[in-house]
Design a protein around this nucleic acid. Structure first.
Length: 702
DNA sequence: AAATTTGCCC
């Protein structure tokens, strides 16, 4: 494109230079220069260049240099070409330093072809020419080109200056060129460039980007006077290596020096706090921002709001958000997201509706809220609203819609999402393909799940493996899940997510040895035994009839959440310890944990195995009256089981007749059986009549 | 500077 434009320009130029135009009189050049300077002083670069262009006399080198510089900062490619043409036409061999300025100007304008042509045609290149050309590549994101030119430079015997090395190190960071960076580091030591703070910071940066944080930190510690940029780099690199603690520590260290943090450093440190919910540190940083009068800055206040949102301190976030200067799309989206993911969907939607402008991220934040709180219908409505309000749909939107299909167990809709993803060319996006894989797997469509999994061979990660593994385990294919685990280790490392699933698989097939091996493996390899893993361990040990271990794991350490308690209570029931289960419920209540559906299934199961019919009845009533947990189908089934086993037929009748739900076929069968055993025909006939009717209306249910 | 996939009980 550049060459094409240049050739058109050449034609134009030849038209301008008429051969029979009168020769310029004496003093004409001076007049031209004056006119040009006049235009420049008034900021009219275009006019100045036009005057030069029409003139048939060379001007002073310094004027060319100034024009090139102005073209650079104004990013005026056409003007730069005109100046270069004039320079080349009226100077047989223009000095290298001027041509270097031209290369710089082309680089700044993004005209790499022009820059390179000029560079290649130069008769005499100096170090500056190489620098200018390398910098042009770097500026336009062509890191590999920059590095290959650097190698040409070395081959041609030109020695690199500090300026060159700074550009080159930047490119090394972009393409993770650790080897070359280390060579440059060596060269810097040899040429005593190590005191150069820009080069030092570049090395801290490049080592961090290449993932060798220890080297990055050593370089940082060796630097005598790290500046604000150096500090920013080290904080940022720790953050990107997921070492949020160290990022925060470095930020606080910085505050002990006299260096004033850049506002980006504030936001980097705040992001680190957000990621690990470090509220106390975040609040201290908030204090610092006030101290240096940056709390009103747009970027800093957005970061503060997001920090409070992520630490679930919505009141604090709201307080900052209420300041007029803090309101922009980003902070607004943070607030919506905070309320939405915190379950305060109504408040989130209110705020969303008030937004003066929204982008795709704002829409996604709201949609994520509906899906997180399993409000499927609202999510569907919101999606149609989104489709009619904006053209914006990105990979996150598609992953969210795929999750919605998973929640609805709607493979049909899921396939439509898949088709849409395919047409957008987004299937190779890891987030999207993982969501689709998960959708097929969780819906039990293993043919499609497998197909996705193989198509993803080139880019799948441990999330893909975990997702498929879990889908198998949840569809009663635990052995298959265990086999996949061995296969998985050829490709990626297992994570706590993997072990959570595997332990549950072991529990379901009573594979105590496997379960113990996993437990031991996790301890030996230093995996964190978090609350989910502890729940899975308790479940595994108790289902494998190893209640001693189960109780040991459960009582070892707090905290315990409701799922963990449910595992303990159910675990006791599995081992015939109903009374203990009921006692443990009191301990759970004393810890202030609210029971849920699962808890009551455990308690009713305890009553069944201990024949505590009265107690069961009281517990069932307390669900609605005391705990506000609406009994589900399973609880009704358990009550029927409880009365039937004990032969409490009148109570059974009363319960069945006052149930708020329709009796299922399996309930009717259980009732019918009990009535026969305990000779209670009045209810038995009712049950068999209903069974006969359901056989006609629903032949599939048998 | 904001949204995003995988795990335990029922």
């Amino acid at each position: 494109m550049g060459a094409n434009a240049a050739s058109i320009l050449n034609q134009l130029l030849h038209g301008v230079r008429r051969p029979n135009s009168p020769p310029p009189g004496p003093g004409a050049a001076k007049a031209v220069t004056q006119t040009i300077l006049g235009h420049l002083e008034a900021g009219r670069l275009q006019e100045a260049v036009s005057v030069l262009f029409a003139s048939h006399e060379p001007v002073a080198h310094s004027l060319y240099a100034r024009l090139f510089q102005l073209c650079s900062s104004a990013q005026a490619a056409l003007e730069a070409r005109k100046v270069e043409f004039h320079l080349g036409t009226f100077n047989r061999t223009p000095p290298a330093f001027l041509l270097n300025r031209a290369i710089e100007a082309y680089g700044k304008c993004g005209c790499l072809t022009d820059a390179r042509e000029l560079f290649d045609e130069m008769h005499e290149r100096d170090g500056g020419s190489w620098n200018a050309m390398i910098a042009a590549y770097v500026r336009n994101g062509r890191a590999k080109k920059a590095l290959s030119l650097f190698s040409d430079m070395n081959a041609s015997g030109v020695s690199a200056s500090e300026v060159t090395l700074a550009s080159v190190l930047g490119s090394c960071g972009a393409v993770r060129e650790l080897g070359l960076s280390m060579q440059i580091h060596g060269l810097m030591v040899k040429r005593a460039f190590c005191g150069n703070v820009i080069l030092g910071s570049s090395l801290v940066n490049v080592y961090g980007k290449c993932g060798v944080m220890d080297d990055s930190r050593r370089m940082f510690d060796e630097m005598e006077r790290p500046n604000a940029v150096t500090w920013n780099v080290i904080v940022r690199r720790y953050l990107e290596m997921d070492d949020e603690r160290e990022a925060i520590v470095m930020f606080f260290k910085m505050f002990l020096t006299d260096t004033r943090p850049l506002k980006f450093t504030f936001s980097n440190a705040l992001i680190a706090c957000s990621k690990i919910c470090a509220l106390a540190e975040g609040m201290q940083i908030h204090g610092f921002t006030i101290k240096v009068c940056l709390e009103d800055d747009e970027v800093v206040s957005s970061s503060l709001i997001d920090m409070y949102v992520k630490c679930v301190e919505l009141e604090f976030a709201q307080k900052i958000f209420d300041q007029p200067c803090a309101k922009n799309v980003v902070s607004w989206t943070s607030m919506v997201s905070g309320y939405a993911l915190g379950g305060r969907i109504g408040k989130a939607r209110e705020l969303f509706n008030e937004m003066p402008e929204r982008n795709v991220i704002s829409w996604n934040a709201m949609l994520a809220g509906y899906i997180r709180s399993r409000q499927w219908d609202e999510a569907l409505n919101f999606i149609s609203l989104m489709r009619s309000s904006t053209k914006d749909v990105d990979h996150v939107t598609l992953a969210l819609i795929s999750n919605l299909c998973t929640g609805l167990s709607d493979v049909f809709m899921g396939k439509q999402v898949h088709g849409f993803v395919y047409r957008c060319g987004l299937f190779s996006h890891l987030l999207v393909s993982n969501s689709l894989l998960d959708m097929y797997g969780k819906c039990g469509n293993f043919r499609y799940a497998r197909a996705c999994f193989y198509l993803m061979s080139q880019w799948r990660d441990k999330v893909s493996w975990n997702s498929l593994l879990t889908s198998y385990a949840r569809h009663q294919r635990s052995e298959h899940a265990m086999e996949m685990f061995s296969e998985m280790q050829w490709e990626t490392m297992p994570s706590v997510f993997t072990f959570g699933t595997l332990l549950s698989a072991c529990a379901n097939i009573s594979a105590l040895d496997h379960g113990k091996q996993i437990h031991g493996f996790m301890i030996r390899r230093g995996y964190k035994i978090d609350i989910v893993i502890r729940g899975a361990l308790i479940d595994m040990y108790s289902k494998c009839r190893c209640i001693k271990y189960a109780l040991k794991v459960s009582m070892e350490t707090a905290p315990r959440d409701v799922v963990l308690w449910n595992s303990i209570i159910l675990g006791c029931c599995h081992n015939g310890l109903g009374k203990d289960a009921l006692e443990l419920f009191d301990v759970m209540s004393k810890e202030g944990i609210q029971p849920d559906h699962g808890t009551f299934q455990g308690l009713l199961r305890a009553c069944i195995c201990e024949d505590l019919v009265d107690m069961g009845g009281r517990i069932f009533k307390s669900m609605t009256n005391v705990y506000g947990v609406i009994p589900r189908l399973e609880h009704h089934e358990q009550m029927i089981e409880l009365f039937s086993r004990a032969g409490w037929m009148r109570e059974l009748k009363k319960f069945v007749k006052t149930m708020r739900i329709e009796p299922t076929v399996s309930m009717l069968k259980r009732i019918h059986g009990a009535c026969q055993k305990h000779e209670f025909p009045e209810l038995g006939e009712w049950a068999s009549k209903l069974l006969a009717e359901s056989n006609i209306s629903d032949p599939c249910e048998r």
